[in-house]
């Protein structure tokens, strides 16, 4: 039995995941918590948010995120893809900045208009 705190939403439910019983989840407040509990044990993923340099914007950094969760173990390599990257204004929220991150199918997309 593994105890986890659900990170799907800010409520932070205290989950119990039974690894010997097909990762059955208890303590979850909603269906997404059950899904998270199982996934966190078998294949943990995270949405990564960061910034890239931008030329011609009102600030020198433009915020980005992965448009879907990527495997936790790829976080470091994914961050490397952003290092030194410089985009040019104008960008729109949702514009793809880096496509198909490390073959995951996820993209880094801009999270503000700039």
């Amino acid at each position: 039995m593994k105890e986890l705190i659900c990170i799907i939403c800010p409520k932070g439910c205290h989950l119990k995941v039974d690894e010997e019983n097909g990762c059955a989840v208890t303590g979850n407040g909603c269906a997404r918590g059950a899904e998270y509990g199982k996934k966190e044990i078998t294949d943990p993923t995270r949405v990564i948010t960061s910034t890239v340099g931008i030329t011609g914007g009102i600030y020198s950094r433009c915020p980005v995120k992965t448009d879907r969760p990527i495997p936790k173990k790829l976080i470091g390599d994914a961050m490397e893809l952003l290092r030194g990257l410089e985009i040019t204004s104008p960008v729109k929220t949702g514009d793809v900045v880096v496509s198909d991150i490390l073959g995951t199918g996820a993209n880094f997309v801009a999270t503000r208009d700039m």
Partner: peptide, 18 residues
């Protein structure tokens, strides 16, 4: 710039700038 905003109001997970 992190995510976790908007789950109650927009029913989806947004970053602060979004």
């Amino acid at each position: 710039i992190h995510n976790g905003f908007g789950l109650h109001y927009f029913k989806e997970e947004l970053t602060g700038p979004e």
